[in-house]
Design a protein around this nucleic acid. Structure first.
Lengths: 220, 220
DNA sequence: CGATTAAGTCAACATATGTTTACTTGCGGA
DNA sequence: TCCGCAAGTAAACATATGTTGACTTAATCG
């Protein structure tokens, strides 16, 4: 329950990039634990983000990935373990996406990634962040990701930890994050029109207005 | 599958108000189909909103309501049917809450209701709206509720159906709705601090900024 | 008061699902 | 080339869950 058993070399982003949609990638090496692990991770993230944790079965994930169900238990201990791995990956991806953006460019960056309809995009990662498995460990991971993300966003707009008046800024950053997540879900999972068919061009303006209103670039 | 069988007089908001939290309401008439139906509806909405559809079992709901499991099938045909009834109720409640607010007061109204932590509050109804059962009928109901709500909000800010340039306004209204839902979920389900411990006072300012930025009170 | 009917209970069933165990197969080094 | 071991497979198991049907109990009406 504590030790992750045979776990392959944990190389993120395996050699063969997972094909975007159905159909295995041209030809894959017939036996490659790292790649198989990654295939499972990608399939799981997509399912979990779109359908939620409980509605997703391990057989669904295994079929999507084109591998055997038992490998989920082997590589991730359990369905819970796989979910936690997805959350961790989402956290990494989120950090990788938004870190080192010039601070005043943050809203556009977010907007551009939210607009991306791809299954591997940030939109999918954001949706994942409000899925819950009921497991305490997973909840803790998700909370950590959300806290870090909102702090990062808040820091770009003048928030400093502990500084008395600036707690407001963190609160507003969390609301901006919540808004982004809400938009992502209504777009990709619920498919509400015209929101879901809006292009990046359509979204970037309103999203900038939203973020700037919550987190004014200058003083609060 | 099409006819809702014995269905009692469908009196909404039964005589005995459902107790807010655990513990049956003082004394209830021992056999009252309408009240039982309402108890189930309340318990189900709460569970569905907090935990999602698949993660909620009919036995959970029945236990919360203090009634027998079989009554769910009797009164709502199936778990799906109960979920659809919850969505319909959320739609009614949402309409009832936001209709006939002076248009410029909409953000405060929404803010005040989102801030309400009560299980019966609008916050719970909003959270419910992004839960999915995978069933097409339920999806259609939810889409209808979301469309009506966003159109109502958009209309308060100058949107007129079909009018060419005003499609923008509808899009922005949907983003505002998405933001509200995101905030509600992060507050009540995910419990992200400091967002989840913020008071109505803390929320109303940022929320007004958010709505006004997306939907300027005057011209677009 | 007695019978009729609706409201509620109980137990069982069929199935879906997470997980494990024993087995097979292909890869890589000696 | 051959052997050992990791990678993958298949089938079975235990359990949880939605639903049903037969039964019991309390209201209501004559």
């Amino acid at each position: 329950m504590t030790a992750e058993p045979p776990v392959p070399p944990t190389s993120d982003t395996a050699g063969e990039p997972a094909s975007d949609t159905a159909g295995e990638p041209a030809q894959r090496r017939r036996r490659d634990a790292a790649e198989t692990r990654q295939l499972l991770l990608d399939a799981a993230r997509q399912r979990f983000a779109r359908d939620g944790y409980a509605a997703t079965t391990v057989r669904d994930i295994a079929d999507d990935a084109g591998v055997n169900v038992a490998l989920i238990s082997r590589y991730f201990t359990s369905k819970e373990g796989l979910f936690e791995a997805c959350l961790r990956a989402a956290g990494d991806e989120l950090r990788r996406t938004t870190v080192q953006t010039p601070a005043d460019r943050v809203p556009e960056t977010i907007a551009r990634h939210i607009a991306d309809p791809g299954a591997a995009g940030l939109s999918s990662q954001l949706s994942l962040l409000l899925r819950s498995s009921g497991d305490a460990a997973a909840d803790e991971i998700r909370r950590g990701v959300l806290v870090r993300s909102s702090e990062q966003l808040a820091a770009a707009r003048g928030w400093r930890p502990g500084e008395p008046g600036s707690e407001q800024i963190l609160l507003r950053a969390q609301m901006a994050l919540a808004a982004g997540i809400g938009v992502a879900v209504l777009r990709s999972s619920i498919r509400l029109d015209p929101l879901s068919s809006a292009t990046e061009q359509d979204l970037v303006g309103p999203l900038r207005d939203l973020v700037d209103a919550l987190l004014p670039p200058r003083e609060s």
